Computed example of a mutant assay.
Amino acid sequence: MYEGVRNVLQKYRSGKLPKAFKMIPHLQNWEQILYITEPATWSAAAMYQATRIFASNLKEKMAQRFYNLVLLPRVRDDLAEYKRLNFHLYQALRKALFKPGAFMKGILLPLLEAGDCTLREAIIIGSVLARNSVPVLHSSAAMLKIAEMDYTGANSIFLRILFDKKYALPYRVVDAVVFHFLRFQSDSRVLPVLWHQALLTFVQRYKADISTEQRDAILELLKKQYHPTITAEIRRELHAAQCRDIEANELTSNHMVVE
Protein backbone atom coordinates (compact mmCIF):
# COMPACT_ATOMS: atom_id res chain seq x y z
CA MET A 1 0.00 0.00 0.00
CA TYR A 2 2.77 2.46 0.94
CA GLU A 3 4.63 1.71 -2.27
CA GLY A 4 1.42 2.84 -4.02
CA VAL A 5 1.45 6.01 -1.89
CA ARG A 6 5.07 6.55 -3.00
CA ASN A 7 4.02 6.48 -6.67
CA VAL A 8 1.30 9.06 -5.97
CA LEU A 9 3.69 11.38 -4.10
CA GLN A 10 6.26 11.30 -6.90
CA LYS A 11 3.73 12.77 -9.35
CA TYR A 12 1.67 14.82 -6.88
CA ARG A 13 0.82 18.36 -7.97
CA SER A 14 -2.31 19.35 -6.05
CA GLY A 15 -5.53 17.98 -4.59
CA LYS A 16 -6.11 15.34 -1.95
CA LEU A 17 -3.38 13.13 -0.54
CA PRO A 18 -3.94 9.39 0.05
CA LYS A 19 -5.57 8.72 3.45
CA ALA A 20 -2.86 6.16 4.24
CA PHE A 21 -0.23 8.92 4.05
CA LYS A 22 -2.10 11.13 6.54
CA MET A 23 -2.03 8.21 8.98
CA ILE A 24 1.79 8.05 9.11
CA PRO A 25 2.28 10.56 12.00
CA HIS A 26 -0.02 8.45 14.18
CA LEU A 27 1.87 5.19 13.67
CA GLN A 28 4.33 3.79 16.16
CA ASN A 29 6.90 2.99 13.44
CA TRP A 30 6.25 6.14 11.43
CA GLU A 31 9.88 6.53 10.32
CA GLN A 32 10.08 3.08 8.73
CA ILE A 33 6.78 3.59 6.92
CA LEU A 34 7.88 7.05 5.80
CA TYR A 35 11.02 5.63 4.19
CA ILE A 36 8.96 3.12 2.20
CA THR A 37 7.44 6.15 0.46
CA GLU A 38 10.99 7.34 -0.50
CA PRO A 39 10.83 11.04 0.51
CA ALA A 40 13.80 11.87 -1.74
CA THR A 41 11.62 11.17 -4.79
CA TRP A 42 8.55 13.18 -3.75
CA SER A 43 7.51 16.16 -5.83
CA ALA A 44 8.08 19.58 -4.21
CA ALA A 45 4.30 20.02 -3.79
CA ALA A 46 4.11 16.68 -1.95
CA MET A 47 6.97 17.78 0.34
CA TYR A 48 4.99 20.91 1.26
CA GLN A 49 1.83 18.89 2.04
CA ALA A 50 3.87 16.37 4.03
CA THR A 51 5.51 19.15 6.09
CA ARG A 52 2.05 20.57 6.79
CA ILE A 53 0.80 17.22 8.06
CA PHE A 54 3.91 16.43 10.11
CA ALA A 55 4.26 19.92 11.62
CA SER A 56 0.67 19.70 12.90
CA ASN A 57 0.56 16.07 14.02
CA LEU A 58 4.01 15.05 15.24
CA LYS A 59 5.43 15.81 18.66
CA GLU A 60 8.33 18.29 18.73
CA LYS A 61 11.08 15.61 18.89
CA MET A 62 9.59 13.65 15.97
CA ALA A 63 8.99 16.78 13.89
CA GLN A 64 12.64 17.67 14.49
CA ARG A 65 13.69 14.32 13.02
CA PHE A 66 11.45 14.78 9.99
CA TYR A 67 12.83 18.29 9.37
CA ASN A 68 16.42 17.14 9.80
CA LEU A 69 16.34 13.86 7.85
CA VAL A 70 13.82 14.70 5.11
CA LEU A 71 13.16 18.43 4.66
CA LEU A 72 16.64 19.92 5.18
CA PRO A 73 18.50 17.59 2.75
CA ARG A 74 15.80 18.21 0.13
CA VAL A 75 16.05 22.00 0.48
CA ARG A 76 19.86 21.89 0.25
CA ASP A 77 19.80 19.61 -2.81
CA ASP A 78 17.30 21.86 -4.56
CA LEU A 79 19.41 24.95 -3.88
CA ALA A 80 22.60 23.21 -5.01
CA GLU A 81 21.00 22.09 -8.26
CA TYR A 82 18.87 25.07 -9.30
CA LYS A 83 20.58 27.94 -7.40
CA ARG A 84 17.12 29.00 -6.20
CA LEU A 85 14.52 27.37 -4.01
CA ASN A 86 11.33 25.85 -5.37
CA PHE A 87 8.26 27.82 -4.18
CA HIS A 88 6.67 24.73 -2.56
CA LEU A 89 9.85 23.96 -0.64
CA TYR A 90 10.05 27.56 0.57
CA GLN A 91 6.45 27.29 1.78
CA ALA A 92 7.38 24.00 3.46
CA LEU A 93 10.12 25.79 5.44
CA ARG A 94 7.60 28.44 6.49
CA LYS A 95 5.21 25.69 7.60
CA ALA A 96 8.04 24.00 9.51
CA LEU A 97 8.32 27.12 11.70
CA PHE A 98 4.93 26.12 13.13
CA LYS A 99 7.09 24.12 15.57
CA PRO A 100 9.88 26.68 16.21
CA GLY A 101 11.90 24.47 18.56
CA ALA A 102 11.96 21.64 16.03
CA PHE A 103 12.86 24.14 13.27
CA MET A 104 15.87 25.45 15.21
CA LYS A 105 17.13 22.02 16.28
CA GLY A 106 16.22 20.18 13.09
CA ILE A 107 17.09 22.73 10.40
CA LEU A 108 18.95 25.86 11.54
CA LEU A 109 21.54 24.47 13.97
CA PRO A 110 22.43 21.29 12.00
CA LEU A 111 22.84 23.45 8.88
CA LEU A 112 25.34 25.72 10.66
CA GLU A 113 27.04 22.93 12.59
CA ALA A 114 27.81 21.15 9.30
CA GLY A 115 30.16 24.07 8.61
CA ASP A 116 29.45 24.07 4.86
CA CYS A 117 26.34 26.26 4.77
CA THR A 118 26.61 28.51 1.71
CA LEU A 119 25.69 32.19 1.85
CA ARG A 120 22.83 31.50 -0.59
CA GLU A 121 21.40 28.87 1.78
CA ALA A 122 21.80 31.23 4.73
CA ILE A 123 20.05 34.11 2.98
CA ILE A 124 17.11 32.01 1.76
CA ILE A 125 16.53 30.03 4.97
CA GLY A 126 17.21 33.23 6.94
CA SER A 127 14.46 35.03 5.03
CA VAL A 128 11.99 32.45 6.39
CA LEU A 129 13.02 33.44 9.93
CA ALA A 130 12.95 37.14 9.07
CA ARG A 131 9.40 37.04 7.65
CA ASN A 132 7.77 35.02 10.40
CA SER A 133 7.51 35.52 14.12
CA VAL A 134 9.59 33.22 16.31
CA PRO A 135 9.16 33.08 20.12
CA VAL A 136 12.01 34.80 21.98
CA LEU A 137 12.85 31.63 23.93
CA HIS A 138 13.71 29.62 20.81
CA SER A 139 15.58 32.49 19.19
CA SER A 140 17.60 33.14 22.36
CA ALA A 141 18.61 29.47 22.56
CA ALA A 142 19.62 29.53 18.88
CA MET A 143 21.70 32.70 19.37
CA LEU A 144 23.53 31.14 22.32
CA LYS A 145 24.39 28.09 20.22
CA ILE A 146 25.46 30.09 17.13
CA ALA A 147 27.63 32.38 19.28
CA GLU A 148 29.62 29.34 20.47
CA MET A 149 30.20 27.85 16.99
CA ASP A 150 33.30 28.20 14.82
CA TYR A 151 32.93 31.26 12.65
CA THR A 152 31.43 31.22 9.14
CA GLY A 153 29.78 33.98 7.11
CA ALA A 154 26.46 32.13 7.39
CA ASN A 155 26.59 32.50 11.21
CA SER A 156 26.76 36.29 10.80
CA ILE A 157 23.75 36.28 8.48
CA PHE A 158 21.58 34.35 10.94
CA LEU A 159 22.75 36.36 13.96
CA ARG A 160 21.96 39.59 12.16
CA ILE A 161 18.46 38.38 11.21
CA LEU A 162 17.78 37.39 14.84
CA PHE A 163 19.14 40.73 16.18
CA ASP A 164 16.83 42.56 13.77
CA LYS A 165 13.83 40.95 15.43
CA LYS A 166 14.52 43.37 18.33
CA TYR A 167 13.78 40.91 21.12
CA ALA A 168 14.23 41.86 24.75
CA LEU A 169 17.08 39.39 25.23
CA PRO A 170 18.18 37.93 28.58
CA TYR A 171 21.57 39.34 29.66
CA ARG A 172 23.01 35.84 29.42
CA VAL A 173 22.41 35.85 25.64
CA VAL A 174 23.73 39.41 25.25
CA ASP A 175 26.91 38.42 27.13
CA ALA A 176 27.38 35.31 24.98
CA VAL A 177 27.06 37.39 21.78
CA VAL A 178 29.53 40.01 23.07
CA PHE A 179 31.97 37.22 23.89
CA HIS A 180 31.41 35.78 20.38
CA PHE A 181 32.59 39.05 18.82
CA LEU A 182 35.44 39.56 21.31
CA ARG A 183 36.91 36.17 20.31
CA PHE A 184 38.10 37.89 17.13
CA GLN A 185 40.38 40.26 19.09
CA SER A 186 43.39 38.06 18.36
CA ASP A 187 42.20 36.76 14.99
CA SER A 188 44.59 37.65 12.18
CA ARG A 189 42.02 37.00 9.41
CA VAL A 190 40.47 39.87 7.49
CA LEU A 191 36.85 39.37 8.48
CA PRO A 192 34.10 39.67 5.85
CA VAL A 193 31.69 42.60 5.63
CA LEU A 194 29.00 40.24 6.99
CA TRP A 195 30.81 40.08 10.33
CA HIS A 196 31.02 43.87 10.61
CA GLN A 197 27.36 44.24 9.61
CA ALA A 198 26.31 41.72 12.28
CA LEU A 199 28.31 43.62 14.93
CA LEU A 200 26.78 46.93 13.82
CA THR A 201 23.23 45.51 14.00
CA PHE A 202 23.96 44.06 17.46
CA VAL A 203 25.30 47.38 18.76
CA GLN A 204 22.36 49.32 17.28
CA ARG A 205 19.78 47.04 18.89
CA TYR A 206 21.44 46.13 22.19
CA LYS A 207 23.84 48.95 23.11
CA ALA A 208 21.76 49.66 26.23
CA ASP A 209 22.03 46.02 27.36
CA ILE A 210 25.83 45.76 27.44
CA SER A 211 27.99 46.75 30.41
CA THR A 212 30.56 49.57 30.33
CA GLU A 213 33.30 46.97 30.48
CA GLN A 214 31.88 45.17 27.43
CA ARG A 215 31.53 48.46 25.54
CA ASP A 216 35.19 49.31 26.18
CA ALA A 217 36.23 45.80 25.11
CA ILE A 218 34.30 46.17 21.83
CA LEU A 219 35.93 49.58 21.22
CA GLU A 220 39.32 47.89 21.73
CA LEU A 221 38.30 45.14 19.31
CA LEU A 222 37.51 47.76 16.64
CA LYS A 223 41.17 48.82 16.63
CA LYS A 224 42.06 45.31 15.46
CA GLN A 225 39.06 44.48 13.24
CA TYR A 226 38.49 47.51 11.07
CA HIS A 227 36.15 48.23 8.16
CA PRO A 228 36.47 51.61 6.37
CA THR A 229 32.76 52.52 6.45
CA ILE A 230 31.10 50.31 9.10
CA THR A 231 33.57 50.66 12.00
CA ALA A 232 33.02 54.43 12.37
CA GLU A 233 29.26 53.79 12.59
CA ILE A 234 29.76 51.12 15.29
CA ARG A 235 31.98 53.53 17.30
CA ARG A 236 29.38 56.28 17.07
CA GLU A 237 26.67 53.90 18.38
CA LEU A 238 28.89 52.73 21.25
CA HIS A 239 29.85 56.26 22.33
CA ALA A 240 26.14 57.16 22.42
CA ALA A 241 25.31 54.04 24.47
CA GLN A 242 23.73 54.29 27.90
CA CYS A 243 25.11 51.02 29.29
CA ARG A 244 23.13 48.77 31.61
CA ASP A 245 25.37 49.27 34.67
CA ILE A 246 25.23 53.06 34.29
CA GLU A 247 21.42 52.90 34.24
CA ALA A 248 21.42 50.65 37.30
CA ASN A 249 23.74 53.06 39.18
CA GLU A 250 21.58 56.05 38.25
CA LEU A 251 18.47 54.28 39.47
CA THR A 252 20.16 53.49 42.78
CA SER A 253 21.39 57.05 43.29
CA ASN A 254 17.98 58.50 42.33
CA HIS A 255 16.39 56.13 44.80
CA MET A 256 18.73 57.40 47.56
CA VAL A 257 17.93 61.03 46.71
CA VAL A 258 14.18 60.31 46.92
CA GLU A 259 14.63 58.68 50.33
Rank of each mutant, 00 (worst) to 15 (best):
L119F: 15
L93C: 06
A141V: 07
Y90T: 09
L89V: 06
L182Q: 06
V193S: 10
R160P: 01
G153P: 10
V177L: 12
Y90E: 03
L111R: 08
L112F: 08
V174S: 01
F87P: 09
K165T: 04
C117W: 09
L93I: 08
A198P: 04
V203P: 00
A96Q: 11
Q91H: 09
V190E: 09
D116P: 10
I107K: 10
K145V: 05
L137A: 14
A114Y: 06
A114P: 09
E121Y: 05
V178G: 08
I146H: 00
L137C: 13
E121N: 05
Q91M: 11
L89I: 12
N86I: 15
F181E: 09
D164G: 11
D150E: 10
F103K: 00
Q91K: 13
A142P: 01
S139C: 14
K165N: 09
M149D: 00
V203D: 00
L137Y: 13
M149Q: 03
S133V: 14
V193D: 02
Q185A: 14
F184H: 15
W195T: 04
L119M: 11
L137R: 11
F103V: 06
S133G: 06
R120S: 03
P100L: 10
Y151M: 12
H138E: 09
E148N: 12
R189P: 01
T201C: 06
N155E: 00
S127I: 02
L111H: 07
Y206C: 12
G126V: 05
V173K: 03
S139Q: 02
K165S: 04
H138F: 15
F202S: 06
H138P: 05
I146V: 08
F158C: 05
P170C: 14
I146Q: 00
L108S: 10
F98I: 08
C117T: 14
L162S: 05
A92W: 02
L111F: 09
I161R: 02
L109M: 15
E148T: 11
L182D: 07
A114C: 04
F202D: 04
H196Q: 12
V174M: 03
P110D: 03
G115M: 03
L137D: 10
S140L: 11
V173M: 07
R172G: 14
L119V: 15
K166D: 15
V173E: 00
G101E: 08
E113D: 05
L137W: 11
G115Q: 10
L89Y: 00
Q197C: 04
L137P: 07
A154N: 00
L159F: 01
D116S: 12
A198T: 06
D164Q: 13
L129K: 03
G115R: 11
A198Y: 01
H88C: 15
